[in-house]
Nucleic acid binder design. Structure first.
Lengths: 155, 155
DNA sequence: GTGACTGCAAAGTCTTTGCACGCGG
DNA sequence: CCGCGTGCAAAGACTTTGCAGTCAC
């Protein structure tokens, strides 16, 4: 990493809720109590989750009628649209992960325990670019899953 | 060896139906009229398809009560199990493609026209192996999608 | 205030299952 | 003839939608 000579702003990412707020404003939408609660839960820790797991974490709030199932689905779609999270189709249900504020990466997928392990490879990005060029394809990103059995499950 | 990412020559040792038959026998299953019809349609041409498109192609047979919706789904599962086709979760519905008799490959996915373009990269396989080794992960395969806009749609 | 948002219930969409009959080996 | 396979209808899993009341701005 090169020394910082005060050129350009230091990268201090805004909290996700703020980013989301900007997105909502740009689209004439409103920051409601429910949306705030969902964003707080989603970004409370860095992990992969599906809609059902999220709903599970939010169960107390659901039980207390602080928010509802459809609202969670609706807000997830908005978070994807806002670029805060990413939706990965994997098996029957979709998996979500943080996109905003985290470096791009790919996944090892354990077929035994269903765990996703993140990794990054610069070579992979190079290959993407090379293949795309060959096919005159305009790349916006990629999804890679290495399937198999994780170290834990192999024991 | 010229540097490109096209697929190598296609070589099919035995017709798919024969392979399927072997699979069925090994598992005490039977080659029924319905299974034969489905395999014939699936391997009538090399292309990606989802369950709905297959059902559409089989519509005359469905209408004539020669086979039914559940049977198509059941047979697709068996074909996956037999290693004749591969199931790719992509978006809400699953996509199937030929596995038996075709070289391993990955995909460019056009987000505009939803077309899948196949490519192969030996480097990709190397990276998989390297990453897996690093994580003491036992690889059984991988799925890679390069997302973007295809040459056709960019015009 | 006004119009976007929510909760509820209900409907989709895609896929799987239970069961009685039919048919392959 | 045995028992796997099928068709039918129905249920299932997951997600979306219509609508009347509610709340953010």
């Amino acid at each position: 990493m090169p020394k910082n000579f005060s050129l350009g702003p230091v990268h201090v990412p805004a909290p996700p809720i703020e980013r989301f707020c900007q997105f909502l404003e740009r689209n004439g939408k409103r920051l409601t109590r429910q949306r705030r609660l969902i964003v707080e839960q989603v970004f409370s820790h860095h992990d992969h989750f599906d809609a059902d797991e999220l709903l599970d974490h939010l169960r107390p709030l659901l039980a207390a009628r602080k928010l509802s199932r459809p609202t969670v689905y609706r807000t997830l779609s908005e978070l994807v649209e806002a670029g805060l999270i990413r939706k990965l189709p994997l098996g029957t249900r979709s998996i979500f992960e943080h996109e905003y504020g985290y470096p791009s990466h790919d996944h090892l997928y354990c077929q035994r325990c269903n765990r996703l392990i993140e990794f990054h490879s610069a070579d992979l990005d190079r290959i993407c670019a090379a293949v795309a060029k060959e096919h005159r394809f305009e790349v916006s990103g990629h999804r890679m899953f290495v399937m198999g059995i994780c170290a834990e499950c192999r024991k």
